[in-house]
Design a protein around this nucleic acid. Structure first.
Lengths: 104, 104
DNA sequence: GAAACTATAGTTAGGAC
DNA sequence: CGTCCTAACTATAGTTT
């Protein structure tokens, strides 16, 4: 059969939308994994949706915590640098977000 | 020329690795955008790497904050439900992470 | 370096089971 | 529900500009 061109719009059919969510989420995690491997970067994901009962942590809850902790530390260091420099508004906003992300 | 199958391993050449990072990051954001559109879900990303000087927020810093806030609220509600139920250890761990993510 | 190009590798929507 | 299939679509490594 001839398949119609996929249009990127909200999928109104419930089961189709759920199936697509699961497929694309899987694909996205694969892409993240590849980016992480090829470029040597830390990566993590938190996934919550109406399509699955449990919040998912990729690659694991522990890794999510570790990656966020490391990222927070890096930005704390940046904060100190910026305080010394008396500059960079954007970086201050960044710190603000990260303090929300990881509270100790 | 015949291209070899891409092998998924750390790219040792610095400029190739950086180029791949930028391409794949762009691809990843596109995939997230599509998932968000097709399935009607909120999505955001924080990107920090050795390849770019500034931390990037996708689709914007404001949206990152909004999505994290919404997610935190949802999990606070789950926490209450679980307290009433006296069950679900995993969900308690989830809450713990989210409290780190969004501190008010 | 970045941006454009392009052939091929990889992804996925819809169907079958 | 999930898993496999595959035509159609998309991403991207290597290359050129």
């Amino acid at each position: 059969m001839i398949r119609t061109k996929v249009k990127l719009a909200y999928i109104t059919n419930d089961s189709s939308r759920k199936a697509t969510y699961k497929k694309r989420k899987k694909g996205l995690m694969k892409k993240m994994s590849e980016l992480s491997t090829c470029c040597g970067i830390d990566a993590c994901a938190i996934m919550y949706s109406p399509y699955e009962s449990q919040t998912e942590f990729w690659p694991s809850l522990l890794r999510v915590e570790q990656v966020l902790s490391k990222f927070k530390m890096i930005l704390e260091m940046e904060k100190r640098k910026n305080m010394m420099n008396q500059e960079c508004f954007l970086s201050q906003r960044t710190i603000k977000v990260v303090e929300q992300i990881k509270k100790h």
